[in-house]
Amino acid sequence: MCGIVGLFLKDQTLEPRLGSLLAGMLEVMSDRGPDSAGFAVYGSGDTDHLKLTVRGKNLEDVAQALGGPVQGKLRDSHLVLSFPKGEEKRVRAWLGCERPDIKIIGAGQRIELYKEVGLPADVAKRFDLSGMSGTHGIGHTRMATESAVTTAGAHPFSTGADQCLVHNGSLSNHRSLRRVLEPKGITFETDNDSEVAAGYLSWKLREGATLAEALESSLTDLDGFFTFVVGTESGFAVVRDPISCKPAVMAETDQYVAFGSEYRALVGLPGIENARVFEPEPARVYAWERH
């Protein structure tokens, strides 16, 4: 089953409320995915700095041990390290050498990514999603059907800088696709099919495709059931497989574009009663960019 949500703000005055709106959407989707939850938020950041979201145990002293200009913001089992871009190599090398137990789950100028096992409302609370601000965010509630309930199996997946994807469905050709992508330098942390979809889009974006073009080609190259919601530093996009196996509802107003697996997820959004509510068509890419 699984539930997915996404919120892309057009109105800057809503940015301080992004986290609380997204938390509300995520909680309603608990019925569709009570096993684990995750979300990515595009918050503050600048072009000179990089943010690295890592998860693991005993993260309290990591930023200090890295020293220099590295700042750390701890939220429960996750730590967001931020530092000047020039430090990236050193930070990654140190983590790999000194703390191989720590997993890097997201990197980019603005993306922060959190995922954990548990009821969506509890997960959102542990990371204080309601207190986060940002321009856009996506979230996922998981009902595991084909692999174990683990944090690693929770969405979103991020396989490129400031890129992330949530997926409702299952892919049939992820094994063969993985063998195509790995020689091209796309690396995977899990055996999850959705991570392969994220990697596929990262590869297309790296080759120069726009987000919309990358999703357009996924309709040809991915086999299986999928509704994807995808975020990039400045973009937000949705696509469904040609037989629209998995549900999707969208709402658009002057203030935002919102996505939910069901309309119920959108009920708490401001001005929803006057929003244009529609069902995205199968095999059609819907994409928005910030200007």
Binding site: S244, P247, V249, V277, E279
Partner: peptide
């Protein structure tokens, strides 16, 4: 049954 808006699948 009369749906005044759109109907899903």
């Amino acid at each position: 049954v009369h749906v005044k808006g759109d109907a899903s699948q």
